[in-house]
């Protein structure tokens, strides 16, 4: 159970801390998976040529 203390705020039990750690780890794993997935979809949608410098549009610098 949560124990309230004026100077310490909400103090979590060991079980609650363990539970929170597991939830945080799960969220981190899901986020990492989404990063990989979005990267892969970007490559699939744009094609491998997105990696080639020569295919990028030329940038004209005006002096």
């Amino acid at each position: 159970m949560n124990a309230m203390s004026d100077d310490k705020g909400v103090v979590l039990t060991e079980a609650q801390k363990k539970s929170r750690k597991r939830r945080s780890l799960a969220i981190a794993l899901v986020l990492a998976f989404l990063c990989v997935l979005f990267y892969a979809v970007t490559i699939v949608k744009l094609g491998p040529s997105v990696m080639k410098k020569g295919d990028l549009p030329a940038i004209t610098v005006l002096a």
């Binding site: 159970m1 949560n2 979590l12 039990t13 079980a15 609650q16 539970s19 929170r20 597991r22 939830r23 799960a26």
Partner: peptide, 14 residues
Amino acid sequence: ADQLSGFAGVEDYW
């Protein structure tokens, strides 16, 4: 819920 608050595991969301 008061007693168990903060104990939800990943398996509960699953």
